[in-house]
Each structure stands twice: as structure tokens, then as C-alpha cells.
Amino acid sequence: MSPVYIARVKEVAARSIGGEMMIMSARDSTLFSLNETATAIWQAADGVTPLAEIVQRSLCAQFEVDPATALRDAEELVEGLAKHGILKLSDQPIVEAK
């Protein structure tokens, strides 16, 4: 299975308010609130680090979760965020996000 790369979309506003990431899409002014784990993934979405590595490094270590379960949940989460247009997914590194 090829690795998944994730990058934050530039066309959003984002701010951590008391540890919770608030993201507003410029496309339709929809506001999203990410919980602590989703925030960790969002913040690590640099376009060049594979999702599996992000999960391993940012989630498993921090939240003491099973790597396979965490990866499955993370894949579901990033697909959802991509559908809402606030995250980009690719099977190649996303260089423009740097």
C-alpha cells in the first residue's frame, strides 16, 4: 500500500483556542473544530511526512494507542478533512505545502 501524504490547505484560517484547533474554510466560511488528536495530525501535515509516520510519532507516542488502529482512524479523519477542502491528500509528497 502506497504511503499517504497530507498537507494543510492554504485557503483556510486556523488558530488554536485553548488547545482546540479552529479552522475556517475560505470557500464557504464553514468553521471546523479539531480535537486534540486531529489537531496533532493537522499541525504535522507538512506535505512530506507520510501519514503513518505522523501517526507513529505524534499520536502513538503521545496518546499510547495501538498503531494499526490509530492509522485506520487517522486515514478516516484525513479523508473527511480532505472532503471538506481543508486538507490535501496525495500518494506523492506535496512539495508546495512547504
Binding site: 483556542i17 485553548g18 479552529m22 468553521l31 473544530s33
Partner: peptide, 9 residues
């Protein structure tokens, strides 16, 4: 959600 964010802030 904006109200919640505002209350939290």
C-alpha cells in the same frame, strides 16, 4: 460553533 468558540475565548 462560533458561539462555543467565543464562550471559550
Amino acid at each position: 460553533l462560533i458561539q462555543e468558540m467565543s464562550d471559550k475565548a
